Simulated scan of single mutants.
Amino acid sequence: MPVSWADVGQRWKLKLTQVDWYLFFGLMFLLFVLLGLSMAALKLNLVVNDADALPIESVVIKGTREKTTDEEIQAALRDLMRRSFFSADVNQVQAALEALPWVYQASVRREWPAKLKVYLVEQQAVAHWNGDAWLNIHGEVFDAPAEDSVGPLPFLAGPEGQSQIVLTTFRQLGELLDINGLNLNSLSLSPRHAWHASLDNGIMLELGREDKMARVQRFINVYPTLVKQPKPVATVDLRYDTGLAVGWENAQKESH
Rank of each mutant, 00 (worst) to 15 (best):
L135M: 05
N250F: 07
G208H: 07
Q123N: 10
L153T: 01
P2W: 00
A75L: 09
W129V: 08
L135R: 03
L46H: 13
A40D: 09
A251M: 12
L205W: 10
M28D: 01
L120C: 10
D20M: 12
H256M: 14
A144C: 12
L187N: 12
W248A: 04
G139H: 07
L167H: 14
D132V: 12
N221M: 06
E111W: 14
K115S: 10
E254L: 15
S255N: 13
A51H: 13
Q10M: 03
I220S: 00
P191M: 12
L205F: 11
P232E: 09
A125D: 04
A194E: 15
V141D: 11
I203N: 08
D79Y: 01
A99M: 03
F32Y: 11
V166Q: 11
W102L: 06
K115V: 14
F86V: 06
V33R: 01
L205K: 09
Q217E: 14
W21F: 08
L173N: 02
L31C: 11
V233G: 08
Q162H: 10
G181L: 08
F86W: 12
A76M: 04
I137M: 09
R82H: 05
I73F: 08
S149R: 12
T225E: 13
V3C: 02
Q172D: 14
E66L: 12
K117M: 14
N45E: 11
N221H: 04
H256A: 15
L46K: 09
G26W: 07
A96P: 10
R192P: 07
G26S: 11
A41I: 02
P224G: 04
L27E: 03
A234K: 14
E210K: 07
A106C: 08
V47W: 14
D143T: 10
